[in-house]
Design a protein around this nucleic acid. Sequence first.
DNA 1: GTACTTGCAAACAGTTTGCATAGGC
DNA 2: GCCTATGCAAACTGTTTGCAAGTAC
Lengths: 138, 138
Amino acid sequence: MHSFDKTIQKLRQEGFKLTPQRLAVIKHMIGNSRHPSALAIHKDLKRRYPSLSFSTVYNTLNMLERIEEVQSLNVIDGHLNYDPDISTHGHFLCTKCGTIHDIRFEDCDDIKLPQGEIGGHTISSIQVSFKGTCRICR
Amino acid sequence: MHSFDKTIQKLRQEGFKLTPQRLAVIKHMIGNSRHPSALAIHKDLKRRYPSLSFSTVYNTLNMLERIEEVQSLNVIDGHLNYDPDISTHGHFLCTKCGTIHDIRFEDCDDIKLPQGEIGGHTISSIQVSFKGTCRICR
DNA sequence: GTACTTGCAAACAGTTTGCATAGGC
DNA sequence: GCCTATGCAAACTGTTTGCAAGTAC
């Protein structure tokens, strides 16, 4: 998710209406590196938008995923987490504090991943998730 | 999941009873590289064990995961798939045919992953999942 | 015989859907 | 004013749980 203006522009281009609820979700996600779940997003926004419903949050997130402004993560069993950074990068789930840390591949020279194809299969996306105890918890 | 005898031995060691249902699930998983879901396992075993319940399948899989005889995979949104191969390896989900292919890191020299720690975080497990079109489908 | 396990049904969590109303354009 | 988006509730999916009856040991 680049910036507010660019995202708004994209919504307009695709013919989506700019409702207060959508703008609130977008604002909440831009630059958000906490990888919130739909539940967490709803809980946070509910304060300012008491009538905001779950379906609107889900609809908006699904729309943002469709137009590639967020990606959904399968890091935790049983629900999805959302990341406004759609670049290919990894995630570290701390099983102690529950935090999801970003792992930027460029910063680690002990990580290398294929691009385009692997074993004859054509790759369209990659998800790398680590579990363990994070830097802060140990 | 090494072999039938070794797995049985482990169950006995841990004090689990060897019920027909458990033996059926274990036999069904050994050497199974199709990464079945609990639903698929239940469906397959139901033929020979018509009274087999979902809870027994789930209980057995959770037990096998606890004693590290299977691992659960987060490759597909919304449900878990089970893999009797607990070694660290990747998975490729074909979005066309739905097949999950194993990706053995040793076989690909364009994959390198860290061991032990990453960015100061202590790693206990890694999951790598690719999505795209598999060798067979394209 | 004594636990542990089973099977059933009900509970549960996260997500999606249907529909009447509201509101962006 | 048209048509999409919202909010609510209900439906749905995958998984877990509670409990009486059954069974491995």
